[in-house]
Amino acid sequence: MMAHVAATTYVRIKRRNKDDISVVIDLLNLEKYSVTEGTLEALGYDRMCPDIIYQDEIIEKCFSFGRNRKKTFTDPRYGLAAACAGWESNRVTSFLQDCLQSNDTPLIYVAKNSLKRKYVRLR
């Protein structure tokens, strides 16, 4: 839990603005579960909108993230799905449609709204 919150906080402290994705990419490259989850949460809660090249990279890295989690845990792609409401990448639709297959009700709700390009109030 501490790594999750630390990653979210680190993104918020280190970025220059809400479109600065460099720190997000650095943290995702660590490939640590809790760090990645916290990083994705910052994307969604802060409605970060990077350049399309980085949108593609993030979706590619995280498309299947959390699939092997225990079914009692929430889907860690929640933050990424929320951020996708404002993204333009061609990969957004396929990612969000994949999220609709999750067993996580909050993720499904966010993904449905992001497909409509609507931001929702997050948990």
Rank of each mutant, 00 (worst) to 15 (best):
E41K: 08
D19F: 06
I13K: 08
R77V: 07
P76Q: 09
V11R: 06
T72D: 11
L28V: 05
R77F: 09
M48A: 04
A3M: 08
W87V: 05
V23W: 02
N90A: 15
A42Y: 03
E37P: 01
R91Y: 13
E57M: 10
C84N: 09
I13G: 00
T39F: 02
A82S: 15
I59V: 14
I58F: 01
A82L: 07
V120H: 03
S94H: 13
K71E: 14
K71H: 10
D51F: 03
N90V: 10
Q55G: 05
L28P: 03
E37I: 00
T93H: 12
F63V: 06
A6V: 06
Y109N: 12
A7G: 03
R121E: 15
K71R: 15
G79Q: 06
Y109I: 14
K112P: 03
C84Y: 13
L122F: 09
D104G: 08
E31W: 03
R12P: 00
G66T: 06
E88A: 12
E31Q: 13
L80F: 11
T36Y: 00
G38T: 01
M48Y: 02
F95N: 08
E88P: 00
Y109T: 14
L122E: 04
F65Y: 01
R69S: 09
A82V: 12
R91M: 14
D20F: 01
A111T: 12
I52S: 11
R91V: 05
F65S: 09
K14S: 01
V5N: 04
R69Q: 11
K61S: 07
Q55K: 04
K32D: 10
I59C: 06
L27T: 01
D98W: 13
Y33H: 14
M1F: 00
D104Y: 15
K18G: 14
T93G: 05
D46K: 04
S64E: 14
I21R: 04
A82G: 07
K61W: 04
K112R: 15
A111I: 08
D51G: 02
G66I: 08
Y10C: 02
K116V: 04
A111S: 13
A7M: 06
I108G: 01
A42P: 05
N17P: 02
Y54H: 14
S102K: 08
K18M: 10
D26H: 02
S22E: 12
C84K: 03
S64C: 10
G86A: 10
E57H: 04
I21V: 15
L122T: 11
C84A: 15
A3W: 00
R117H: 14
T93A: 09
N103A: 15
D20Q: 08
I58R: 03
M1H: 02
G86F: 11
S34F: 05
A6N: 05
R67V: 12
V5M: 07
K112S: 11
Y33S: 09
R69W: 00
A3T: 04
D75L: 12
L115P: 12
K14W: 01
F65C: 05
I13M: 03
L30P: 00
R91H: 15
M48L: 03
N90G: 15
T105V: 13
Y78Q: 12
I59E: 04
R123P: 13
